[in-house]
Every structure is written in C-alpha cells, then in structure tokens.
C-alpha cells in the first residue's frame, strides 16, 4: 500500500526526529502517501501510514482530519487553492473565483468531468502583497486577473 519510493521519502523525514519520536513524521508521511494515491486518503492508507510509523491508527486519523491539506473525497489532478481572505477579497478574489467557476463549469468543491481540476476556497496563504492569488501544487500564482487565470488554467494538463 505504501510504495518503496514513498517509504524512502518518509524515512528521510523520520531521521529528523529523536529516536522513538518517528510519529513526528506523520504529517509528511500522509502527504507522501496521498500524492501517490489519487491525491486523497482513505482509512486504509491512513492505517498503513500509522503502521509504518508504529503509531495508533486513531492518532494518524486525527492528524489526517485536523489539517486542511489532506483530502478525503475525490479531487482533480490539479487542485486550485484560491485565497478568499481579506487582502485577496479587497482585491477582487470573489469576482475572480466566480470567473473561474464559470470558465470550468463547476462550483468550488466540485471536480471537472474530465477529472482534471477542482477549485477550493482557502484561507490566507501568506502572499497578501500579491493579492489576489491562488496555489496549484507547490506553486503560487499572484496578482491574478481574469486573463491571467484563463492562461494558467488553459495550460493545465
């Protein structure tokens, strides 16, 4: 259930913590396993992470459900995480989110029929001087306009 590649990645985090505190790596371990399982977690994958880190399944499940960056429902290949907090709102994020929903033909929380994209409204991503902004994967896109959004979204494969 956890590939050897993922185990190696998890091990690289485990060594950062003192002996016996390998469960400190659970947050990254869940992300690594999520990434290779259609970007979402199931009770089975959560248990597998818990087993690998020798921690109770419930402890891993608590982490998996407490933090925002784990998915428990199907998501697209790309999740567009659109900030709608104050600095982005003051700079028109609501209008741009509507523009994006119209362009994709789905509301926030839904996945495009081809399984490629879903849009999620998120709280402040800490790039307020570049508002309005969103995140796709590791990358931030700032100072967004409707045209810029079209260009970015059209480039997603």
């Amino acid at each position: 259930m956890i590939s050897n590649k993922a185990k190696k990645q998890i091990d690289a985090w485990v060594v950062k913590y003192p002996e016996g505190h390998q469960s400190s790596a659970v947050m990254e371990a869940l992300k690594i396993v999520q990434a290779e399982n259609d970007n979402r977690l199931t009770s089975d994958t959560i248990q597998a992470v818990a087993d690998y880190l020798a921690m109770p399944g419930i402890a891993a499940a608590e982490v998996a459900t407490f933090y925002e960056n784990y998915n428990h429902k199907p998501v697209g290949k790309h999740t567009i995480r659109f900030c709608h907090n104050i600095s982005c709102m003051l700079n028109g994020s609501d209008e741009l989110i509507t523009h994006l929903e119209n362009k994709l033909g789905v509301k926030t929380g839904e996945v495009t029929p081809d399984g490629l994209i879903n849009v999620k409204k998120v709280e402040c991503l800490g790039a307020c001087v570049g508002a309005p902004m969103f995140q796709i994967g590791d990358q931030y896109y700032e100072n967004l306009t409707a045209d810029k959004i079209d260009e970015i979204v059209d480039g997603l494969k």
Binding site: I86, S87, E123, C124, G126, A127, V129
Partner: peptide
Amino acid sequence: DEGEPGTCKDR
C-alpha cells in the same frame, strides 16, 4: 507558520 491574514513577511 505564517498565516495571520494580511501577513506575508516571513515568506
């Protein structure tokens, strides 16, 4: 863990 809305200096 910078996340206070409006804050983007530590980044």
